[in-house]
Structure formats: structure tokens, C-alpha cells
Design a protein around this nucleic acid. Structure first.
Lengths: 346, 346
DNA sequence: TTGTAAGCGTTATCAG
DNA sequence: CTGATAACGCTTACAA
């Protein structure tokens, strides 16, 4: 536990100046092999482990940290495979920038994004609640990129063609002849309870709203059950509520996890999928344990979305403008949709 | 985009010294309301958003960042609900320290843990491969805590009574009268392919080894299939391989996810659980969509393990010693185990 | 190729 | 309660 040894100590021991020693470690300028060796030897001798990142980051203005601001707990956020894939994409794409991912929440339960040495910040999910955060970050000169948020903030937004994609699924269902469909939606608002929602109501959460709009382009007035979130169990809950009350020939779920739950609930009631009930998902993730069903769904390029975030950050860090990017989902037919049976099973 | 405004600018504008202005923002020392107001007004005027975290962290020696070093990709790590719960616990317990979680890997695909301003580091999973990292961190005076690792490094380890817990499950199965059991294990080594393993082989990964030892305390020579990792689908794969070759009356899976896959595979083959096949898990997580089965399993306090990590960090940061902690799993009986049928179904 | 000088923006300490 | 002073440990023009 010797007192802290600094680069100056190393330089002194090696008989060179601090700047030379610094350069030996950063490798940014050529140093004669001989002096470099001397510096390294001195460092080893003194137990110097390389520059202190704190001091380096003050000097260079870079910390190697990209903050990802989420609006929910870690546990909740990472329940969603899409969130994980996106994060993975972000992590991968910022790695070449020499950066890592710092998990932050915007509710005061973690250090504020403004109290941590960030090189850039990613707004993950809906943050419409908290425009001051964005403003603060931007005024500090910290590049900000949003995933699936409100483009109004003037920051680049990496998003999806949610409405069009969901409409495509709805058209597929309509084309098969279905007229009587129901929707299992994602969370309506940040704190909304699950349940049926009135046709007049509009979802607060962007993704929910956009996807629902896609269904409504095709089906006038579907019954909508807003789930507690995206999971198989919530899908089961929603499907049971729907099937207790209505006899739709198709259910459009706003996520694959929810769809898997719908299938589970339907088959447990003795309904055959897709003969008695067609089911569609959204996301195109591999739902663990769903086999032998293959969901008819829209695949979203979550990982690529994450990579786009990193690209945008890189651009912003260079002082360039970064454009918003809207990714396109692709239709993935499975074996969970079919024309409706002529008569209701009931 | 005015040039960067510093606390000195604010102080000057407010007609006070920089130190006074600093104290207004940190709140660590009393300042007269009047001067405080003047400083704040000046800050607002100039668009000063508070101290630069980089400079503050150099000066104070604290960055508010706890690094979590994982050995796999984000995607892989977060597939496991236990990992998520543990991370959640860590995030929660370091929050009061004013810290957030920085996701790091030890394979050069993210900034090295040594290049980032960490207040502390958590080694997540097996890091036996990389003792230099630990050494480097420790020499820098950065507190290190390990989750489920090798206690040999001299850092506190937060772990589980894996062997005893698994043995408890094995005794439960033996007590029901089972004599012919098989095991679905977690990954054998960091890069091992799935498959049956020879009785002589010992797992490289700590958790796998410890849990297997628990089974072997009770059952001499079970057939062991090492899965590709912890997921329902890998469990299905493993169970099918086992049931193709053997007729065990019970399968002990090393995770709940694997156990869920075993159940799925078994029921798809027409075996009834638990009548024809008893199945146990490990972890005690709520497996999404497993209902109506309730796994007989050991519950591990993953979240609390995470909290213990935070506690250890807090202690280390105070300069105290932090003890290693070994958590105890609790038996959770479900409806997936029963005495073996008198004759094989086959 | 190496050294000199000048901060990066803050905050702890201590005196007033 | 406020101010002066001195670091925190490093990097980077620029000069030699």
C-alpha cells in the first residue's frame, strides 16, 4: 500500500520528463526504444499501473463512458429480449470508440446522468416525462441519441416503422378472411394497469400507440387488452381475459412474448392454433420454448438499431450531425395464422 | 454554443470566489442564502449546468461508477434471469453510494476496466482466466468483489452453497425412491460443446462443478448431459438426448430454465410429469410460461447476492475489510417430483 | 526524439 | 460564512 505513484514519479525514476513518460504509455508519439524501456522498467519497479483514468479524462475530455438512461428497473428492462439485443448492439458499436455502457435511470435511483463523466447518452425507451434531462445534457455538450422516443427534442432518434409493420400484419390477417380480431397491446402508459381499453383512448407510450395505429388502419374497432408488459405470462393473462369475453378468430399481440402467451392460453382452452385462432406477434425474437409453433410476426432489427445508436454517437462525437434513422421491420410468416374456421368453435 | 462556462466564470459573474460557488453547488458547507441565490442566478444567466463530473472526479477521487466485468456478451449474460436479478441487486445497492453500473467485458471488446474511472469493480462469473486484471485493479487501489468466483484472489466472494443445495435436491429425489437419475448440467467450460460427459470429467466452471458435486454425493454415477447454457430450449435439447438413450425416473437440472425445457420435452414425448418423470430445477426463478407446473427447486437469493456485493463495496470504499459471504438456498417443493412409477412407461 | 510549460475544472484546507 | 491557495494526475502544443 505505498502512497499513490504518479507518472511524474515514474518519469523521475526513469530520468525523463513527465511528458515523455506519458507518451510511452499512450503510444501517440514515437519514443526511442531505449527510453521507452527505461520508462517501463521504472513503472514496473514502482508498481505504476498506467495513467489514472480520472486525470486522463479531465485532460482529454473523454471518459470512455456512454450512459444508457432507462425509465424502468434493470430487472424490468432486461425482461425484454428486444431491449437486450438493442443494448448488445449499442455495446458492440460503442466498443470501437473505446467506450462502455453505464446503466442509468432517470428517477433519481441512480446517479443523475449529469453527475457522471459521460461522453454521450442514450435515451432508452420513452422519456417524454423528462425533457429537462435532455436539455441539460445537450447544454453540457454531451451528445444524446434516443431509441424509440419523441423526435421533438431535436436529438437523433433511432426507431422503427411500427405503424406500417403492424398494419402489414393486420393486412395479412384481414387477407386471410378474419373480421373479428382482438389486440393484446403493450403497456398503455408508464403506470397503467392492465385491462381492456376504450376505443377512444390513445396509448401514452410511443411504441404501443404506433403499433395500435397500424391495426386500426385495417380493423375499425378491435377489442384491445393492454397488458402489464411484455412477457408470456402477461400474454396468457390478456388472452384469457379476451377469450372469456369475446370470440375473435385472430389475436394480434404487440410482442412475440405476448403472442406466445396467447398461444399458450388458447391451446390450454382447447383452441387449436391456427385453426381456431390465428395469432401474430411482433419483434421476431426466438421465444424460448415456443416450439413447435413458429410465430407469424414482424422481425425488427433490434441489434442493428443498437448499432445505429453507436454510429450516431460516433458521428456526434466528431462534431458532425447525426440523422435520425427509421428501421424497417420484415414480415416473417409462421404457422400461427390461417383462414378463420367457418363456424366458431364455441 | 457559447464557449465552455466554468465555475470560475459563474463565481466572477456572481462576485464571489470559485470556492464559494463550488460550495453552493455541492451544498457541503453553509452559504448565506443571499450569496447562494446570487451564484445560482449567475449560473442560470450563463447557462452553467453544474460542476463538470470529470474535474470533480479527479479532485474527489470518486467517479460514481462501479464496473461489472462479465466474461460473456451482454446478450448471453442477460439471458439468465439470475444474472439479471443479481445485477439488479448490485445496481440497487450501489445507488446509495451514488454509483451506477458500467458494463465491462474482460476480453478487449470493451474498454479495459483499467482505462475507465472506476470506484470499484465487480467480477461477475468465472474469471479464473484472468488473474492479472484482478491484480491490476487491486494495485490501483480499486476495491474488487467477486460473484461466484475463485476465492483465491484474496477478494471478497459472494457465493452460494451450491453443493449443499443441490445435494438437498438429490436427497429429496432419493428419498422419493428414485435410483435411476440423470443430470442436465450448465456449461462445462467457457467454450465447451453440449453433450454427455464422462463420469471422470470435472467441470471447469465453478457453479457447474459445485452443483454436480452435490448430486454425486447422493447418486453414484448419474448420466450427465452438459447443456449449451441455461435456457428452456437447451433444456429441451438435453432432455431429448437423455431420453433417447436412457430411461431415468428423474432428471435433475442445474437451472430452472433447463428444468422447464426438460418438462417440455418430456410431456411432448407423452411422459407425464411427475408421474413418469420427476424433474428438479435450481434457482427458484419464475419461469415465464411454465404454469401449471411448479418446479421443485432450490431458491437462490440472487437479488440479495447483488445487494451483498454493494455492501461489500461500500465497506471496501470506507477502507474497511469486507468478508466473503456464502448465501444459503432454500428448498422449494413444487409439483414436479413424485415417487417413481413401478414400471417403466416405455 | 525529448523537455518545458500551461493548463483541464474542480474542491479541500485553512486562514480571515 | 467567505476567500486565497494549492493541488488532483495527466496530456499536448510548442520549443529545443
Amino acid at each position: 500500500m505505498a502512497a499513490k505513484v504518479t507518472i511524474a514519479d515514474v518519469a523521475r525514476a526513469a530520468g525523463v520528463s513527465a511528458s515523455t513518460a506519458s507518451v510511452v504509455f499512450s503510444g501517440k508519439i514515437k519514443v526511442s526504444d531505449e527510453t521507452a524501456a527505461r520508462v517501463r522498467a521504472a513503472a514496473a519497479e514502482l508498481g505504476y499501473r498506467g495513467p489514472d483514468p480520472r486525470a486522463a479524462s479531465l485532460r482529454t475530455g473523454r471518459s470512455g463512458i456512454v450512459g444508457v438512461v432507462m425509465s424502468s428497473s434493470l430487472r424490468t428492462a432486461f425482461l425484454d429480449p428486444i431491449a437486450i439485443a438493442t443494448m448488445d448492439g449499442i455495446a458492440t458499436s460503442v466498443a470501437p470508440l473505446g467506450a462502455g455502457i453505464l446503466l442509468l435511470r432517470d428517477d433519481g435511483r441512480t446517479p443523475a446522468a449529469t453527475e457522471v463523466p459521460l461522453d454521450a447518452a442514450v435515451l432508452f425507451g420513452t422519456h417524454s416525462e423528462n425533457p429537462e434531462l435532455v436539455e441539460n445534457l445537450v447544454e453540457r455538450g454531451i451528445p444524446v441519441v434516443a431509441v424509440e422516443g419523441d423526435p421533438a427534442w431535436g436529438v437523433p432518434v433511432i426507431s422503427l416503422d411500427n405503424t406500417e409493420a403492424q398494419a402489414q400484419l393486420a393486412h395479412h390477417i384481414a387477407g386471410l378472411g378474419h373480421r373479428n380480431v382482438a389486440v393484446v397491446s403493450l403497456r398503455w402508459g408508464p403506470t397503467t394497469e392492465p385491462g381492456f381499453v376504450s376505443p377512444a383512448s390513445t396509448p401514452v407510450i410511443d411504441v404501443t400507440r404506433e403499433r395500435l395505429a397500424g391495426v386500426r388502419e385495417v380493423f375499425e374497432n378491435p377489442n384491445v387488452f393492454s397488458a402489464r408488459g411484455s412477457s408470456v405470462d402477461f400474454g396468457i393473462e390478456a388472452a384469457n381475459a379476451i377469450l372469456d369475453r369475446y370470440q375473435p378468430t385472430a389475436i394480434l399481440a404487440q410482442s412475440d412474448l405476448l403472442a406466445a402467451g396467447v398461444i399458450r392460453a388458447a391451446t390450454e382452452r382447447g383452441l387449436s392454433v391456427p385453426k381456431d385462432l390465428s395469432v401474430t406477434g411482433f419483434d421476431g425474437v426466438a421465444v424460448d420454448g415456443l416450439a413447435p409453433y413458429q410465430l407469424t410476426t414482424m422481425h425488427q432489427p433490434a441489434y442493428d438499431k443498437g448499432r445505429a445508436v453507436g454510429d450516431a454517437i460516433a458521428r456526434l462525437l466528431e462534431g458532425e450531425k447525426a440523422p435520425s434513422v427509421r428501421f424497417t421491420c420484415t414480415f416473417r410468416p409462421g404457422n400461427t395464422t390461417a383462414p378463420p374456421a367457418h363456424s366458431s368453435v364455441n
